[in-house]
């Protein structure tokens, strides 16, 4: 129960990104796991019933999120960041949450119907949530970097969330 409370607290922290070391102090990977599973499930969505079609894509989302987070973390460690490996992984994982919310909104919009209007709505929602994720994660992570290298750290994070939001935006159930 205590772990569940900690996970819930971290969700709230991501929704209101402010600089606090409490989130960084005690890391865990439960939240990222839950977010990753739900995101992959929702990206799967419509084609879940077909046998061979859905399989690789589900694992693909998993691998992209975890492998991407590991690579970003290694990058920031190699650049001389003062943050520990798992803390960075934790922050990156939790900051996927706005994108999961965006995915939820997208599915609801797609239920209403597909067209130019719905595409514009999805574009706006995904863009906003993408900005949110990037801002939140950089707010947490940028402090640990030396100031002259900040851009080098932020750029891969930007790319990481960009790929995920691209997957969300281009998703259409068959």
């Amino acid at each position: 129960m205590r772990d569940l409370k900690a996970v819930g607290k971290k969700f709230v922290h991501v929704m209101y990104p402010k600089k606090s070391s409490a989130l960084l102090r005690d890391w865990d990977l439960w939240g990222p796991l839950v977010l990753c599973v739900s995101l992959a499930l929702m990206l799967q969505g419509g084609s879940a019933d077909s046998k061979d079609d859905g399989g690789p894509q589900f694992a693909e989302v998993f691998v992209i999120i975890w492998f991407g987070a590991v690579v970003i973390t290694l990058n920031s460690k190699l650049l001389g960041g003062t943050i520990s490996f798992f803390q960075s992984l934790c922050v990156l994982g939790y900051c996927v949450m706005p994108l999961t919310v965006a995915m939820l909104v997208c599915r609801l919009v797609l239920l209403a119907g597909a067209g130019t209007v719905s595409f514009i709505i999805r574009l706006i929602v995904v863009g906003a949530m993408f900005g949110w994720s990037t801002l939140a994660s950089t707010a947490f992570l940028a402090d640990s970097q030396p100031p002259n290298r900040k851009a080098l750290v932020v750029y891969p994070i930007f790319l990481f969330y960009f790929v995920i939001s691209w997957m969300i935006l281009t998703f259409t159930p068959q």
């Binding site: 772990d3 439960w30 796991l33 599973v37 499930l41 879940a48 859905g54 589900f58």
Partner: peptide, 20 residues
């Protein structure tokens, strides 16, 4: 089952429960 996703989610849930 023929569904890969259901299997994968079940295994992941079981593994993480076990880890905890």
């Amino acid at each position: 089952t023929s569904s890969f996703i259901a299997c994968m989610v079940t295994i992941i849930l079981l593994l993480s429960c076990d880890f905890w």
